[in-house]
Design a protein around this nucleic acid. Structure first.
Ligand code: SF4
Ligand code: SF4
Lengths: 162, 162
DNA sequence: CTATTAAGGACAAAAAATATCCCTATTTTT
DNA sequence: AAAAATAGGGATATTTTTTGTCCTTAATAG
């Protein structure tokens, strides 16, 4: 069970977009080049963010993406769920229904304890991601990334932002 | 990102084995029949449990599986990890290494904040599963499952346990 | 000796992830 | 008005993972 690589891509792209000045847009092409990713496929991840309402887009030259909310209002969970989906990681195939001792039609209304426990763990994972904001990430990165690299990256992005 | 169905199978099988009297064994065949699962494939899940040391096996007629520890000493996490593996759900493909502004060979020693945050969420998921014992599950099931079905299932298993 | 079992290797089928390609409508620039 | 660049999205292909089957081997109980 491994998350799609698009999750990583989306998180990194949002981190970049968080640093974009008000009203400017960054294209798929620039984001793909910056991260060394296949442009067409990265585009699918960005479309997921767009469909989830996390980013705003414009068409045409100088078009692209910007965040739809302030980084302090955007959680990791929103980004992860946008590309990975909202379904639970444990799916119940209802194997208890096959119990040969069971009276037919019985015992299938509510999920059993196994499923509930697994779903609780799932929820703990989501809670953790829900409590990290994109602004938290940017803050950590700004401290950890060497300032010259940080600055050059910022300039690289600005040159290409429409 | 969805857990293998073998996770569900393994949990249900452990729940059954937890009710097995001391010193007796239940075969793959019986477990597969009880749950309506393909015997050969379920066998792979049970082999995973065996390799992880969670169950004990014997060969020959009347052979099969029993728990290697008391249900109170067996956690959900152990069972889940036995079949699903211990690797993290977020894998870092190190895309920051492609940053065109970066000085070559720089900034690749430690995982970045993105990975660390995702791994923390992973750990929260594991913590939750680590804190549920197989005995907890059995206790809940014994309350929730209709007593006649519970009793008949128990007898069904005993008839086939070697 | 025979029947039954777990273990495990080889292989096959199905599903999901990872792309690539191409067309359309829109918008900016020229 | 024309041209160029963009997001969106459908169709398709490739690769990897999951799911499942089949068969052989060694051990064990009766
Ligand atoms: S509800 Fe419980 S018993 Fe039924 S399939 Fe899900 S986990 Fe298994
Ligand atoms: S360490 Fe961070 S930057 Fe590097 S690939 Fe992993 S998530 Fe991305």
């Amino acid at each position: 069970m491994i998350l799609k690589s698009q999750v990583e891509w989306a998180l990194h792209c949002c981190a970049i977009l968080a640093g974009l000045p008000e009203g400017r847009y960054l294209s798929t092409k620039a984001l793909a080049e910056f991260h060394g990713l296949p442009k067409e496929y990265l585009s699918k991840a960005l479309q997921s963010l767009s469909q989830a309402g996390l980013v705003h887009t414009t068409l045409g030259p100088s078009g692209g993406y910007r965040l739809a909310k302030a980084p302090a209002e955007l959680t990791f969970l929103e980004i992860v769920e946008a590309v990975e989906g909202r379904s639970r990681t444990f799916v119940c195939t209802n194997i208890r229904a096959n119990n040969p001792c069971r009276a037919p039609g019985y015992c299938e209304e509510t999920p059993c304890a196994v499923a509930r426990i697994m779903w609780e763990a799932d929820e703990a994972w989501r809670d953790k991601l829900r409590n990290v904001r994109l602004s938290d990430l940017v803050e950590i990165l700004s401290k950890e990334i060497p300032s010259d690299l940080w600055k050059r990256s910022f300039e690289w992005v600005l040159e290409r932002a429409g």
